[in-house]
Write a protein that binds this DNA or RNA. Structure first.
Lengths: 314, 314
DNA sequence: GTCATTCTCTGACCTTAGTCAGAGAACCGA
DNA sequence: TCGGTTCTCTGACTAAGGTCAGAGAATGAC
């Protein structure tokens, strides 16, 4: 409260700088409270690095390389950490049968025990944040935390153009088809649908986006960019885990600006009546329902939106 | 989203464990995003420790001991950090004229320049958190962050029993009187009021609480515990900076349980009509207005509450 | 079968962060 | 003016966290 000097701002409604000021206040408070306590609690019995690692290995065996990526560690350093956990009898590191260059790590039962100690500490930390508050305050804090968590997670999702044959893309598409199969009362056979072949979603005839969270794919969206016709959104899907992050809206915005950048002035799409929330999304994103512009057997609704190059955003 | 194993819980409304689970999710997301980025941005040119220090010194000269307390550093360590900043020409350390044991630190102009670089980095970090979000999401994130910030700050406030002659207590009382002087249309002279002398707010005749945030006093509250009469709240005050943290309510709860612990079954207080929000607080905390029980010249309202030993709280 | 590549590990090295035990200067109260 | 206290500093030390340059095994492409 006494605290650091502040910018001088005074707008009525939160201007960008005002937002930034508040984010900074948040960062400060949170790193002080959560950060300090976090290290304090976690590090009581072993270095934070080891604790984090133990934690990240978790239930199932993990490839060393994956851990390295996930935690962003130097391979030498990680190796040493693993050695240390190994001599403490907490993990076992062994070559992976299919590719003996790669090694996998799994927790021993001692490791699992240690991990559950860390778990308890983490609970303790969480409790210590709530403890001084009365129950109304607790409820509000938890709700606000959930909102921050959700939105920061959303901000962490990276959307990239990838080839539709990339493993992450394929994984998304398979999940998407599986979901359609469930959702449509007619079922869904990819073969019967008017699906563009991969070539149509690859430059120069189109493009394909994959969203990833901490390296794991969590959604995809394709765009057809036919010569002399409207651009078309295809195969947009968001993993159930990643819903509520505004990702679909982000895909649409991205595709829209890509389409505009390629000289298209109309974006369209078709969809199935079973996908009610998608339909709501399209409407609220500015799409208008139009007569069928193709004879996709699985489609019940067709939408269209006039697009323009966005003004210098940000 | 893929993320760590979770507890198994399923209550309708957030049970304690459910709250704790959410707090943990929050901690995880936030330390990953904010923590990592924070160190990354801040530490680009110099160690985080030095950067934090540079930051904390800020505009005005600071006593070394104050910095030490504030940042919770070992005196040897702090000394070394200062030496390092000094050889870089960023700060000047000199004995304080009034007490030459104490030394004060201030930034040189180079130090101020360096600090504004850090400032810019911090803005950059804040920006990078907002950047991937659309404007509605940004607004919601910022609002939720402000809520988290406020409540975590509230949870950081420590309330302790101190002697009413302690400098922190005196500071609070002076601020309190100064504020009454402003607020009452009659002004306020402590001498004319029925103020208990300090002895009455000191065990065994009473007690005095001071709330501190990061070591700085931010509020106080006194309690009279007269033999054979109702316990009485006196001199409750919260610093303007610290309002909205639920601190007054916390004081009341604390005093109430202290009074009950000392065998009192009634808590009472008087207040001035100018203190409208305090009056609202008393009512909502379960106090009922009663006829005057004293002839305090500055009082317009008298309140009373029946109290009992709280059931095992938490 | 050869060669380039991928993956993990080891050794050598470095900075940061922090602790602890005094030393020495300045101050304060009696 | 003496003795205890307060405050800062120095030296000696430690652990954590991390980087870098290979070495060596396994693999895949040709």
């Amino acid at each position: 409260m006494t605290g650091a000097p502040q910018h001088e701002t005074s707008p009525e409604h939160p201007a960008p700088t005002d937002q930034i000021r508040r984010v900074r206040r948040f960062n400060r408070t949170v790193t002080e409270r959560v950060g300090v306590l976090h290290d304090h609690y976690l590090g009581r019995s072993r270095p934070v690095g080891e604790a984090r690692l133990l934690w990240e290995i978790g239930g199932r065996p993990q490839d060393v390389r994956r851990l390295r990526e996930r935690l962003g560690l130097d391979s030498g350093y990680l190796s040493r950490l693993l050695r240390s956990l190994e001599t403490d009898g907490l993990v076992v590191v062994e070559p992976k049968p299919r590719d003996r260059r790669v090694r996998t790590v799994r927790l021993t039962s001692a490791g699992r025990a240690e991990r559950s100690v860390l778990d308890a500490r983490s609970d303790e930390l969480a409790g210590s944040l709530l403890q001084p508050l009365n129950s109304a305050q607790r409820a509000r804090l938890v709700a606000a935390m959930a909102e921050v968590d959700r939105l920061l997670t959303a901000a962490t999702v990276a959307v990239d153009v990838v080839d539709p044959d990339h493993p992450d893309a394929r994984w998304c598409l398979e999940s998407y088809f599986a979901e359609l199969q469930e959702a449509f009362d007619t079922g869904f056979e990819p073969g019967r649908s008017l699906l563009p072949d991969a070539g149509e979603l690859r430059p120069p005839k189109g493009l394909f986006l994959v969203a990833r969270l901490y390296g794991d794919p969590v959604g995809c969206a394709g765009l057809k960019l036919p010569h002399g016709a409207a651009a078309e959104v295809k195969r947009m899907w968001v993993a159930p885990d990643a819903r509520g992050l505004g990702l679909a809206r982000r895909f649409l915005a991205e595709l829209e600006s890509e389409a505009a950048r390629h000289g298209h002035d109309t974006l369209r799409l078709d969809t199935n009546k079973a996908l009610a929330s998608a339909i709501g999304l399209y409407r609220s994103a500015g799409f208008r329902e139009v007569p069928a512009f193709n004879d996709e057997p699985y489609a019940h609704h067709w939408f269209e939106k006039r697009i323009t190059l966005p003004a210098a955003a940000e």
